[in-house]
């Protein structure tokens, strides 16, 4: 700041002195000095309208060096991403940094850039984790649809690391989205059975699978048409659905998804006891299927807590 003050003072003196020099010998004697002072005064006043002499300049290189010296955890998200980019600017071949950057971009919903970063990383080094992240970003970019591009990425990821849970889940999801619910169910239940009990993904995936499989199977157009008609009664419709499900379960030709639907709809109607009954029926029926039992165990735990809270 002192340096700045000196520079500004010298600059002012040089410029003003240059301009006023022809007046130096003029009379009255005070003429030249007062013009000089006037110039400096006007310039100073204009400068100080909005000046920020205390704020240091921040050339990018300096800012980047400071970021590099800081613990990344202590930085904000934007700064963390920039730090990764700084690393990549000096070394374009850092596959881990590209992948990390891709994950951060994906988290901030900048999918196109994230995909680019993942692809850069994969060109340098194939990595199952990164491939799987790439696949998921493709899916996010396409509003949740599992596209062929995403599938290709997951297939490659699974080939490299068969233990990875995501590919299996999304293969199932693709089958589910194309309407082949049985295939989806098989893929998912096998996947859940395969995962280690301590794997946090196991619970996560089980919950997701329950949510997806227990979605009521309805024809959207039929619902709209019904809703538009005058004697539409949503309760009646739900009751009809429960009845159909019950009939199928009783007849023994209900699939796993039907069982889940029945549990879910009874739970939603507040009929916990009925829910437990339906759950028990499902347990009896799918005792040999390990994946199915995992989901049912989770459901049982959830229903019991609900009941506990109810009392």
């Amino acid at each position: 700041m002192i340096l700045l003050a000196i520079i500004l003072a010298v600059t002012a003196f040089v410029f003003a002195g240059f301009a006023v020099w022809p007046a130096a010998r003029l009379r009255p004697r005070w003429l030249a000095p007062s013009i000089l002072a006037g110039l400096a005064g006007v310039a100073g006043a204009t400068y100080f309208a909005g000046a920020q002499p205390q704020a240091p300049g921040v050339p990018y290189q300096q800012a980047a060096a400071e970021r590099m010296a800081t613990n990344p955890e202590a930085l904000g998200q934007a700064a963390q991403m920039e730090r990764l980019r700084d690393i990549l600017r000096t070394d374009e071949t850092d596959a881990a940094a590209w992948a990390q950057l891709g994950r951060m971009l994906a988290r901030s919903e900048r999918e196109l850039e994230a995909i680019n970063a993942f692809q850069r990383s994969l060109r340098l080094e194939l990595n199952a984790r990164t491939l799987s992240d790439l696949g998921q970003t493709f899916i996010n970019l396409n509003d949740g649809q599992v596209t062929d591009e995403a599938r290709a990425a997951f297939e490659e990821a699974q080939r490299m690391d068969a233990a990875l849970p995501e590919p299996g889940f999304f293969f199932g999801l693709q089958a589910f989205q194309s309407g082949d619910i049985d295939a989806a169910e098989t893929i998912w239940l096998d996947l859940i059975a395969r995962l280690d009990d301590r794997d946090p993904y196991k619970i996560l995936i089980s919950e997701q699978v329950f949510q997806l499989l227990s979605q009521p199977q309805v024809n959207a157009e039929a619902v709209e048409a019904a809703a538009a008609s005058e004697d539409f009664d949503p309760r009646q419709r739900i009751a009809d659905m429960v009845q159909r499900l019950e009939a199928r379960v009783a007849a023994g030709d209900a699939g796993f998804a039907d069982h889940l639907r029945l549990i879910r709809v009874r739970g939603m109607l507040g009929d916990n006891e009925g829910g437990m009954d339906a759950l028990q029926a499902a347990r009896d029926r799918f005792a040999e299927r390990e994946g199915a039992m995992t989901i049912l165990d989770l459901l049982a735990a959830a229903l019991q807590t609900d009941e506990g809270q109810g009392e």
Partner: peptide, 20 residues
């Protein structure tokens, strides 16, 4: 600091224009 010098030079050009 460079920015502040730049701002001052703009102010100086303004003042010199008045003298001009």
């Amino acid at each position: 600091m460079i920015a502040e010098i730049g701002r001052f030079l703009v102010a100086l050009a303004f003042a010199l224009s008045i003298l001009q």
